[in-house]
Design a binder for these strands. Sequence first.
DNA 1: ACAGGATCCTGGGGGC
DNA 2: TGCCCCCAGGATCCTG
Length: 279
Amino acid sequence: MPELPEVETVVRDLRLLLVDRTILRATRRTRKALRRPWRKAWESQLTNNTIHALERRGKWIVIHLNDDAFLVVHLGMSGQFTVCPAYSDYLDHVHFTFSLSDLNDRVSQELRFRDPRRFGSLTLFDSSQKLLGFFEDNELGPEPFDLDPNVWHTAITSTKRCLKAVLLDQRIVAGVGNIYADEALFDAKIHPGRLGNSLSEQECDRLRESIVKVLLRAIEQRGSSIRNYIGGSGLQGSYQDEFLAYGRTGNACSRCQTELEQVRLAGRSSHFCPQCQPE
DNA sequence: ACAGGATCCTGGGGGC
DNA sequence: TGCCCCCAGGATCCTG
């Protein structure tokens, strides 16, 4: 579900709500397995630990704690990570709660992790070295905003995979998912089924610039809420109202009025304009 | 090396 | 109302 703009929105929301606050208690509310195993010992490691920074890396949320510890969260397809009043009702599928130290005269609050489909995960690393090692083991690629044009050009043109598969590959670029891959390819006027090694240098540049443009605009709109995505403060995003390709099969292309089409690539539905994005 | 499929899950929507 | 099937913002593993 959440791609880079949604994760960035959660991080920005939570930064305002969590920095300098202490986790008084970490509670696992279900025994259902998530994508990665949770160790019981992490609960005591988190207790009385203070959050001093939050950052995003690709689709990962990194929470900096004292003693060089890091809580790393992935939202998978349906994850929600929100701060809410401690007395508010629990929805179903809330797997973790982290009660927070009071802030001045505000009501007591909790950080909650909810994830109906359980493709998300929470993992604690007890040193920055282990955190970096984790990203290295995953071969997590560069942030879209830091892409070196030459490295990008080489990565694209040295593969015979279709572009949709390349954009979804977190080793090539971190943070792009199904929605923003389609939107970026539409913006760049490049067909998602084109093979990487068929792109010209100009097309590589255009695609890279479209990715950045689409992601930045989506962040401005707090991401896309099409099913159950919400930000760290519970607010929805609105970029879904600006989709030009994703989910618009059968509608008229905003540029040329041709009917948009849909194909399945890399196991994912891909939306495009057959006129603007020729095969 | 890569495509394609299955898998891990729950829930919503459409068709009947 | 219910049932069945398909689909979904992710990522990984297996087969051919």
